[in-house]
């Protein structure tokens, strides 16, 4: 029934996938986790983010796509709409409050 996922059970830092923690004065409302190697750069998360917190990063992933990164971490509410629109399971949102 269940297949063992041999590889990426814990996402080490080059693959991404950990919840992004930012040092700011105010308390963060939400955050996102971006799994960089899965991203194909379609830009849906950036376009449909209600508060426009995300933008394309200048770096490439292994396939040569620009993955998103969080530009305004203090704006993000963790609504997970980016996660719902992502066709590649590369981004997930989480509420912190």
């Amino acid at each position: 029934m269940k297949e063992k996922n041999l590889e990426d059970q814990n996402f080490s830092s080059p693959r991404g996938g950990e919840w992004i923690e930012t040092q700011t004065q105010q308390k963060l409302k939400g955050t996102v986790a971006i799994i960089r190697e899965r991203c194909k750069g379609c830009g849906y998360c950036i376009e449909f983010c209600p508060l426009k917190c995300l933008e394309f990063s200048k770096e490439f992933n292994g396939k040569g796509y620009h993955y998103p990164h969080i530009k305004f971490p203090e704006k993000c509410t963790g609504c997970d709409l980016c996660g719902m629109y992502c066709p590649d399971f590369a981004i997930f949102g989480k509420k912190l409050l």
Partner: peptide
């Protein structure tokens, strides 16, 4: 993963 569908394909959604 990553799956075979093209960048921006709706099947992933």
């Amino acid at each position: 993963l990553p799956h075979v569908w093209c960048s921006g394909c709706g099947i992933g959604i």
